[in-house]
Amino acid sequence: MKRLAILAMLAATPAMAAEEHAVPFFSLHNPPFVVVIAFLIFLGIVVKAKVPGMVGKALDTRADQIRKDLEEARLIREEAQMILASYERKQKEVQAQADRIVAQAKSEAQTAADQAKADLKASIARRLAAAEEQIASAEQAAMREVRDRAITVAVAAAGDLLTKQMNAKSANALIDDAIGQVGARLN
C-alpha cells in the first residue's frame, strides 16, 4: 500500500510528459512499470508462502534420500563382508577343530584298545587258570583212581590169602570185620 502511495505520487509528478511516447518509466501510465509492481507483489506472496523454503526442503530431502540409498548399499556390502569374515575365521579355526576331532578319536581308540587288551589278558589268564585247575584235578583223579584200585586189589588179595589160611577156623565174620576196619583206616 505504501508502495502504491509512492506510485501515485510519482504518477502525479508534473514532470510527466503528456506525450505517451515520452512516458517516464516510473509511471502508472507505463504498463511495464505496473507489471514490475505486480511482479514484486507476486514474489512477495511466493516468499510469504515459504515456497523457497519448501523447494529447499524438497532438495534437502532428495539429498537425504540419496545419502540414505548410498549408505544402505554400503551397509549391505559391509554386512556381507562381515559375514564372509566370520566364515573365513571359522574356516581358519576349522583345521584346529578337525585336528582336535581326529586326535580325540585317536586317543579314544587307543583307550579302547588298551582296555580291550587288559580285558583280554584277564580273560586269558582266567581261562588258563581254569584249564590248569581242570588238568590238576584230572591228574589227581587219575592218581586217586590208581590208589583206590591198589587198595581194592590189596584188600581183595589179603582177603583171598586169609581165607585160604583160615578156612578151618571159620572165623569169617571176624575177619571180615577186621578187613573192613583196615580198609577204613587205609582210606
Binding site: A8, A11, P31, P32, V34, V35
Partner: peptide
C-alpha cells in the same frame, strides 16, 4: 493480457 491489465492501472491518475 498482462500488458492490457497493466494499462488499466493508470486509471487512478
Amino acid at each position: 493480457v498482462m500488458e492490457v491489465f497493466a494499462t488499466f492501472a493508470a486509471l487512478i491518475v
